[in-house]
Design a protein around this nucleic acid. Structure first.
Lengths: 214, 214
DNA sequence: CGGCTAATTGACGGGACTCAAAACAAGTGG
DNA sequence: CCACTTGTTTTGAGTCCCGTCAATTAGCCG
């Protein structure tokens, strides 16, 4: 990146530090691009009657596109303490346009987000509660699990409520299905946010993936 | 676009004509970029047990990203007779990378697709059958409706089954909810694929959008 | 007109939601 | 260090919406 571009980007940038639970970025009439410097966030869409859908969880290093409000309103909330840098999308594009390579990276980022969102659409549209939870755990294990001797360990910063809002389920259903997975010996939960996946293959088999049935 | 780039793109391109019902593009181990020259297509994701989720409908002029097979398999099917041009994603990016402007257009395309997919996630995760159908009709009206004296006219190339697979509902539920909207005087269906939306505002009110409740 | 597929309508059952209560984790102050 | 408080998670009972199965009707093309 040239020095000139960097300077201009810094001028357009808005820096925000947020504590857990804060909503540092609220959708307005313009699309925004947000870089997650540290911590983790949820992108939430708001429908009528207070219903919320978590559209994506994003972690340190991710780039998030926050759409302008149209049929639904969007906002970004902190799951952790985190640091964010946001730009108005149009300015951001104008500035990085000349920087060969950068814009390609942004495009790839956006295509990954698109692929993730499509996976979510399958989950929400065609899967049972148990399959949704299993899918979720497998995907989280792929994104940020640490292999230990007995399986894969996960630290999930989001609450059961966030999981429900992400999977299109209620808290109670999330909890019930977790209990069932526990009873099946697929995982144990040493604490609220810590998960130890004992049988990743077993979870994958319950996730309704194409490979499991074929 | 330079002549050199055009020549290279044409070399990488695969042209396909497809009749209604064909699946001219089947997901493989590489991401693909497909341009819809004419006609309309559905992007379908396959889960276990033969369940299908329509991830997006795309029409003439649209650019579609078909992900490689991972947890789920994707394919593109023709709703109409249509003509498609496809590229392996990595080659496509390499070629248009130098062309300033082009790649920005592709990025914007991808962000629109992302926003659409997120809207779909809300619909699938948090809406009732009736809200889903109303949302679908409103969104289709915005994308390709023709205003007439009594309301907005729609020609939908997809079957009830496709609508169901897109909205996470069964054919029967789609049909039942359509009947209810008809009974409420919100629309009439002169033929199978023709819809006349008599009261767009009424449909929007039933779509569960944020504005309706606030 | 006749045959075929798509769409609609009906009856019934099940999975997830709702409401409600109990159990549990995680701080807080004594 | 422990009792207390508070909010989260888990568990339970009942209900409803949508899915399943089945039959009828309507649209479409030869």
């Amino acid at each position: 990146m040239t020095e000139a571009t960097r300077t201009k980007l810094e001028a357009a940038a808005r820096y925000a530090s947020a504590l857990s639970g804060d909503a540092p970025i609220v959708g307005n009439d313009k699309d925004q691009i947000v870089f997650v410097g540290s911590g983790s966030v949820k992108l939430v869409a708001h429908a009528s009657a207070g219903r919320e859908q978590v559209v994506a969880f994003q972690f340190a290093g991710d780039l998030v596109s926050v759409p302008a409000t149209r049929a639904h309103a969007y906002s970004l909330s902190a799951l952790d303490d985190c640091e964010l840098i946001s730009f108005p999308a149009d300015e951001f594009f104008k500035l990085v346009q000349q920087e060969e390579g950068i814009i390609l990276e942004v495009l790839k980022c956006s295509l990954v987000a698109l692929a993730n969102c499509r996976e979510k659409a399958i989950t929400l549209g065609r899967k049972t509660a148990q399959e949704r939870l299993a899918s979720f755990l497998v995907s989280m294990a792929e994104r940020g699990g640490t292999p230990v001797d007995r399986g894969v360990e996960l630290h999930l910063p989001m609450s059961r409520s966030d999981m429900g809002d992400s999977l299109g389920l209620t808290i109670e259903t999330v909890s019930r299905q977790l209990s069932e997975l526990r009873a099946s010996g697929l995982l144990i939960t040493p604490s609220r946010s810590k998960f130890l996946l004992l049988d990743l293959a077993g979870l994958q088999a319950r996730a309704g993936h194409i490979r499991a049935a074929a």
